[in-house]
Simulated assay, not measured.
Amino acid sequence: MSMALVGDVGGTNARFALWQSGELAAVEVFACADFASPEAAISAYLERQHVTISQLCLACAGPVQDGQVRLTNNHWHVAADSLRDTLKLQRAELINDFTAMALGMTRVTEDELLSVAEGQALAGQMRLVMGPGTGLGVAGLLPLPDGRWQVISGEGGHVNLPATSEREARVLAYLQSQQDYVNAETILSGGGLLRLYQACCAIDQRDCLLDSPAQVTAAALAGDDYADAVLEMWCCWLGRVMGNAAVTLGSRGGVYIAGGVVPRFAERFLVSGFHQAFCGKGSMSDYLTQMPIALVQAEWPGLLGAGVWLDQLS
């Protein structure tokens, strides 16, 4: 395959890299606010690298419809036709950022994965990828007989948040009093950790002394018992929701925890009740204990996935 550009475009930053022979090179991060359009940002990147490209794939934080994406919290309008014509390319592909994240799992190396639970991955079976980040991404990843991969995409982060204890029910009731619908990513996201802390403080009639997710995490890791209990509840809720998805998809090929949230407290996560909550499905518990679970610590999985998308088209 000739030289290609891959990108991971979010609301604030755009990450670009060169892709050739299944490898990333020259990763750079650009502030979207500094450029009037994605074409301008890509042109600046290519000028810095002194290269020309024949094709590109951008993973974008938003739904792709008719070859276009309008990004949330970003003035860019990304359109495949415009990219192809302006940059004089043979091919311009736009995919959802979590589709790219899922495909990136096919290129991460063992040293970029932290084992959360041992198990036996079955060849040819569905894999589950979930990523607590700005929201909660959920996808299935299915190996195909010809060696390619099929992403089973959806909006799994918007399922109902399940409560299985009196404490969780009280928190859920409080959240429901504040908003019409409480989905999983209400809690299982970066901002969700703060919402969970605030909900716990409200039902316990405590003052909220912390005012950011980073502060809740830092307090928990520093030994604050109350913040640690909130973080533990967050981990267990993630396990329960991931277990639901794993049962639904039949993810005997393995489970990946992606996204930027969990790596911030990886050691604490490993000793949390996450895995017990993941497997706590009654008669299906043994089925779930057989699934290996890994925490993804790769730096650029979205860029890798965009490259895999291009490779599969060639």
Rank of each mutant, 00 (worst) to 15 (best):
E112H: 00
D66G: 09
D224R: 01
F274S: 08
D85Y: 06
V230I: 14
S272E: 07
S165Y: 09
P145A: 09
V78H: 09
M284R: 14
F30L: 15
A266I: 01
V230F: 08
F16H: 09
E47P: 00
E185L: 02
I152R: 13
R268C: 03
E47K: 12
A121I: 05
R48L: 15
L128Q: 02
Q297H: 06
A227Y: 06
F274T: 07
T109D: 13
L303M: 02
H75T: 12
L83C: 07
A294R: 10
A218K: 14
D207L: 13
A306P: 00
A173N: 11
W149Y: 09
W309P: 00
A169N: 12
D211H: 13
E166F: 09
G239S: 10
L114G: 00
L175V: 01
A25E: 13
A4M: 14
G154K: 12
A41M: 14
Y174W: 15
I257N: 07
C279K: 08
C236Q: 15
E47Q: 15
A4H: 14
G156F: 04
L89T: 02
F30N: 04
E23T: 05
L24H: 03
Q198T: 08
A298T: 01
G7Q: 02
A163N: 11
S189M: 07
Q20V: 01
Q176G: 09
G260T: 00
N183R: 13
I187R: 08
S212T: 09
V216C: 03
L89F: 06
D66V: 02
D85M: 12
G157A: 04
I257Y: 04
L144W: 03
A202H: 05
C32V: 01
A277Y: 10
A59V: 04
A31D: 14
A40Y: 13
V151E: 05
S189N: 08
Y256D: 01
